[in-house]
């Protein structure tokens, strides 16, 4: 290169452009644009044909291009109690699941953070490992455990604790077990990250000042681990609201959650505008927790 410094700066700028442009354009095309299309189709009418919706932009008989917006899908969503119930149920189930995950995950994360340093990585790895095996097959294990002729019922029967099989599968309880089982790593990892950074000197100071361990935990450890608690809860809550597989396979017909309702609307009723309206509503529901999570992630990224 005989241009010397100028050429190197120019090639640096070119490299910078390529580094940025490639993922930027890809995400604009395959992540952002699709959402705009969803919003558009949510406002179109269902039609018989392929694709099964009417265009928003239409030519009238006088050859005038008109925009035909149809708020019917959103009206149905608000008027038909079925959808509202499903969304409220999703929020409740996801919220309770996040709390249950916290109850199971906090002691685990705390114990790992207190373990000898050379063992911590292995202990964490053991928490993450099931995540690497198939999600569906892990849900399947719980069907085998919880079904009427399943392992748990057989165990309870043989111990004489019950005289006939309990209904365990296809209940809301089964959905909770499934969500906690599948999302536990997402709770433990951020909790561990904040608990491991906690300075033990603070606890010693609390003890020196006469605080009992439990009081020290409540006044020192718990408030300081709040960022981890929030991150973990968001990481469980957000995907759980839109979860499809677990309510479909472990929940009964009553477990109509947002993700499952959307799936049925699309694949069984073939109502694309309604499915799109449900997606928009789900996104509106999740925009606050998602924004909160991103602010947390951005803060961590900067720290």
């Amino acid at each position: 290169m005989n241009g010397g410094g100028g050429a190197s700066i120019a090639s640096g700028r070119l490299a910078r452009l390529v580094v940025l442009a490639l993922p930027y354009l890809w995400l604009l095309l395959f992540f952002l644009l699709p959402f705009l299309i969803v919003a558009k189709i949510a406002l179109s009418e269902i039609a018989v044909g392929i694709p099964p919706y009417a265009p928003i932009l239409r030519w009238t008989e006088e050859n005038v291009l008109t925009v035909v917006l149809n708020f019917g899908s959103f009206a149905t969503l608000l008027e038909d109690g079925f959808y509202l119930d499903a969304y409220l149920r999703s929020l409740r189930v996801a919220g309770i699941s996040a709390l249950l995950c916290l109850l199971v995950g906090y002691p685990m994360a705390y114990a790992i953070a207190r373990a000898p340093e050379h063992r911590r990585n292995l202990l964490l790895l053991l928490v993450v490992l099931p995540f690497w095996t198939s999600f569906l097959l892990r849900v399947m294990a719980w069907i085998g455990i919880l079904q009427d002729q399943g392992v748990l019922n057989a165990l309870l029967l043989s111990l004489g604790l019950i005289s006939e099989p309990l209904r365990l599968l296809y209940t809301e309880g089964a959905v909770y077990v499934g969500i906690v089982y599948c999302y536990l790593p997402f709770m433990v990892l951020p909790l561990y990250a904040t608990l491991a950074k906690l300075d033990p000197v603070l606890l010693e100071a609390a003890a020196d000042l006469g605080a009992r361990p439990f009081r020290a935990f409540l006044t020192v450890t718990l408030p300081l681990s709040m960022p981890g608690i929030l991150a973990g809860c968001m990481l469980v809550f957000i995907p759980a609201v839109g979860e499809f597989v677990i309510p479909e396979l472990l929940g009964g017909p009553a477990a109509q959650l947002a993700g499952r309702v959307l799936w049925v609307e699309f694949f069984q009723n073939r109502d694309w505008p309604m499915a799109s309206a449900l997606a928009v509503a789900l996104l509106v529901l999740l925009v606050v927790p998602i924004a909160a999570f991103q602010r947390h992630a951005a803060r961590r990224g900067r720290a």
Partner: peptide, 14 residues
Amino acid sequence: VMPEVITGLSLLLL
């Protein structure tokens, strides 16, 4: 954190 049903539906519509 995007629910999979939304990602899936939006990509199909695209």
